[in-house]
Simulated assay, not measured.
Amino acid sequence: MIGKRGSATTSISTADAASITVRGRDLTRELMGHVSFSSYFFLLSTGRSPTKEQEFFLDLLLVAIAEHGLVPTNQVARMTLAAEPGCLQAAVAAGILGCGTVILGTAEACGKYLQQARSTTESAADKNAALEAHVRGIRDAGLKIPGFGHPVHKPVDPRTERILELAEQHGVAGPHVDLARRTRSAVHEVWGKPLTMNVSMMIAAVLLDLDFPASILKGVPILARTASLLAHLAEEKETPIGFLMAHHAEEAISYEEKLA
């Protein structure tokens, strides 16, 4: 046997001939027709029903991160469907496989940063000075702060500002949102120029303040982008551009022979 052995149980669901039970609830009588999909996702992931604020902001964040044009995840999905029109699931999978530390996966890295920075600075007499020192240490190590920078949105990411606005209006902006905001100031000071705080940082901050488990931070953008991928693939069947994008890539990239 490879790996650590766990108990041979699952707490998510079970089924028999007459019923399906999900997290202790009867699927057909207690869930179907009673809960939204985002509420159901929260229940599936945590075993708890979400509060009204948790459900509201989960919906908000899913909408915020689902779509952003012909980004690489959508391009590769459309090209995959063009290559194999009969395999929708492979095209979706191809797009999801592109959710890494540069695109979409950064919410998880932002969550780790916020938790570490909070642990490092929360006992300091001057929290802002301690945070700036923490950020400077990251920069001096040749690393970057996750959640900062964007190729399109400058000087601010409009999604970030809207999430922040609503978090404040709803009274859910807690220590992680505060830390994200102060990190923005520290990053500007340490790097000597304003860097866009992108939507991934605010997604992580709001979810952590709303008591979402850190283990699903990366899952929220993946869930959202799946919906977008399906939309792009439906459009690809009606208005194919997968091969057109591949053609333009061939035209844009020149061949350069390198001698060994």
Rank of each mutant, 00 (worst) to 15 (best):
H170T: 04
I20Y: 07
V135K: 11
R29C: 07
T226Y: 01
H232A: 09
D59W: 08
D16M: 03
E161A: 05
I96W: 02
D140K: 15
H176G: 01
G105Y: 05
E67K: 00
D211C: 04
V172Q: 12
A249C: 02
S185I: 04
A18V: 07
A227H: 05
G86T: 15
L195K: 09
I96A: 11
G98S: 04
L208R: 06
L58Y: 04
S200Y: 05
A94K: 09
A17N: 09
E189Y: 04
G174H: 01
E84A: 11
P240R: 12
Y40N: 01
T106Y: 00
V206F: 03
E236K: 00
I216H: 05
H247F: 06
A180E: 02
T183N: 02
L223M: 14
R118H: 12
P194L: 06
T121H: 11
V220Q: 04
G6K: 15
Y40I: 02
I65L: 13
L81V: 00
D140C: 10
L229W: 04
S228C: 08
A94D: 02
L114Y: 15
G98T: 13
E250P: 05
A83T: 11
F243N: 06
D209V: 06
S13I: 03
I145Y: 12
P158L: 10
D16S: 14
G111C: 00
R5T: 14
H248L: 15
R162L: 13
M32C: 03
K237C: 11
M245A: 09
S7E: 15
P240C: 10
T80G: 06
W191M: 14
F243R: 14
A173N: 11
I12K: 04
E236S: 12
T101H: 11
Y255K: 04
L229M: 01
S19K: 14
L88V: 04
A64Q: 08
E236R: 09
G147S: 13
G95V: 10
R23N: 06
D211F: 04
R139T: 07
L104V: 01
G100D: 10
A90H: 07
G219S: 13
G95Y: 05
A231Y: 07
A249V: 03
I222R: 08
F37I: 06
A124I: 00
T73L: 06
P213M: 07
P240G: 08
C99V: 15
V206L: 12
F42I: 12
A117F: 09
E250S: 10
H232R: 11
A231W: 09
H134W: 05
R48G: 01
L229H: 02
G219K: 01
S215G: 09
T101D: 15
L104T: 00
M1Y: 12
E67I: 08
T73S: 15
S39H: 08
I163C: 13
G174K: 15
A93T: 13
L44S: 01
G100W: 03
L233K: 07
N128C: 11
L81E: 01
H248K: 07
N74V: 07
L259G: 13
H248A: 02
H176L: 08
H188G: 12
P50H: 09
E161H: 03
A227F: 15
Y255R: 05
I163W: 03
G47L: 04
L97M: 15
Q169G: 02
S185F: 13
R139M: 00
F42T: 11
Y40V: 02
R159S: 10
H232C: 09
A15E: 10
G86H: 12
I103Y: 10
L27A: 13
K258Y: 13
V135R: 02
V76D: 14
V35Y: 04
P175I: 12
A133L: 09
